[in-house]
Simulated assay, not measured.
Amino acid sequence: LNMQTVEEAELCFPQLLNSSCKRTLQHPYVYLTIHLALSFISVLTVFLNLLVIISICCFKKLHNPTNIFLLSLAISDCIVGFLISFQIAQIDDCWYLGDIICVLYVILDYVITTSSIGTMVLISVDRYVAICYPLYYPTKVTAERARICVSLFWMCSILYNCVLFRDNLQHPGRYNSCSGECLVFLDYFGGVFDLLSSFICPVTVIIILYARVFVVVVSQARSMKSHVAAVSIQGSVTITAKKSEIKAAITLGIVVVVFLVCTCPYFCVSLISEDDAVSASSVPFLLFYLNSTFNPLIYALFYPWFRKSLKLIFTLKAIKQIVTFNILHPGSSKANIL
């Protein structure tokens, strides 16, 4: 009787002795640590991205093309924060929500992460045009075009992933080896195409564009220093130029390195894996989620307007405006936040 009780405790569904998956039994302290860590990441991700969303939505002066891309990125990353709760629910490697919810969860996860990567590409294109072709930027890159690009990319992302996982949608749970498992399957050609379109191509575009931006920024900083030397102006101007060059190098380096560190493990595992099955509880998924936590720090905290809007939020001025409906008045949303 004791042996039978122990065996049942190791199953996801004890009532299904012959078909249930086995739970991953962990020490209570390990279980608690993982649970607290994932909960912290989830709350932090949602909180940071909500700050970006509130800041951009509340002030019309922030409705420029770059911030529209940042808003799209923050929305996708905020949803990722909520998706982490599914990881918390299956710490013991058991899926209790059914096969249909499993497929929908994985597809939503792919849609969100694809949209996040795509938005990063749009941001890199935006910065490339702004820095390399500043005279064309105001006319070629407008807020309306930015909204259209974001909307089209989200719709294409949903359609693309539904087609990619169409077999899993038609036959949910078909590839599960036991009850309590959440597994989806991509055929060889689908996996290769997804790898190219979701990782290799976007990463290539981002690296090339940011490398070009970096070269132009450094060149402009050196030209400024040469100009300073020519007109014999001493002191603060030279220091400012030097700081600008260093800041540009550090910022662009952080953007590329953090993105690659957070995304490479998942796609590398998918590339070298002997089978094409993708587990919804794998460690690379968790690291991939962390990129959504870092994005608001990398893309938003470097902007002065974000720090200024944070002061309004944390001093409850923005909340007071919302509660009293002052934010709906024509003048309130036009406050000078820049």
Results as ranks from 00 to 15, higher is better:
residue 2 N to A: 10
residue 3 M to V: 11
residue 5 T to E: 12
residue 15 Q to K: 08
residue 20 S to W: 04
residue 27 H to R: 11
residue 30 V to S: 09
residue 31 Y to T: 10
residue 34 I to G: 00
residue 35 H to L: 14
residue 46 V to D: 03
residue 51 L to V: 06
residue 56 I to A: 05
residue 67 N to Q: 02
residue 68 I to Y: 08
residue 69 F to S: 07
residue 70 L to V: 00
residue 71 L to S: 05
residue 71 L to E: 10
residue 78 C to S: 14
residue 78 C to Q: 11
residue 79 I to A: 04
residue 83 L to E: 13
residue 84 I to F: 05
residue 84 I to S: 01
residue 90 Q to V: 03
residue 90 Q to A: 07
residue 91 I to E: 08
residue 93 D to E: 14
residue 94 C to L: 05
residue 95 W to M: 10
residue 103 V to E: 13
residue 104 L to S: 02
residue 105 Y to L: 14
residue 107 I to P: 02
residue 117 I to Q: 06
residue 119 T to G: 15
residue 120 M to E: 13
residue 129 V to D: 08
residue 133 Y to N: 13
residue 138 P to N: 07
residue 144 E to T: 06
residue 149 C to A: 15
residue 149 C to K: 06
residue 150 V to C: 12
residue 158 I to P: 01
residue 163 V to D: 02
residue 167 D to V: 12
residue 171 H to W: 13
residue 175 Y to G: 03
residue 176 N to L: 04
residue 176 N to T: 15
residue 177 S to T: 13
residue 190 G to R: 06
residue 197 S to W: 02
residue 205 V to P: 04
residue 210 Y to L: 09
residue 212 R to W: 09
residue 220 Q to A: 03
residue 223 S to E: 12
residue 224 M to C: 08
residue 227 H to D: 15
residue 231 V to K: 11
residue 235 G to Q: 04
residue 239 I to Y: 01
residue 240 T to V: 00
residue 240 T to P: 00
residue 243 K to S: 02
residue 251 T to M: 15
residue 252 L to A: 03
residue 274 E to R: 11
residue 277 A to V: 14
residue 282 S to P: 01
residue 287 L to Q: 05
residue 291 N to C: 08
residue 291 N to H: 11
residue 302 F to L: 08
residue 309 S to I: 02
residue 310 L to E: 04
residue 313 I to Y: 00
residue 316 L to K: 13
residue 318 A to T: 07
residue 319 I to G: 00
residue 321 Q to C: 12
residue 323 V to L: 14
residue 329 H to V: 03
residue 329 H to L: 12
residue 330 P to V: 07
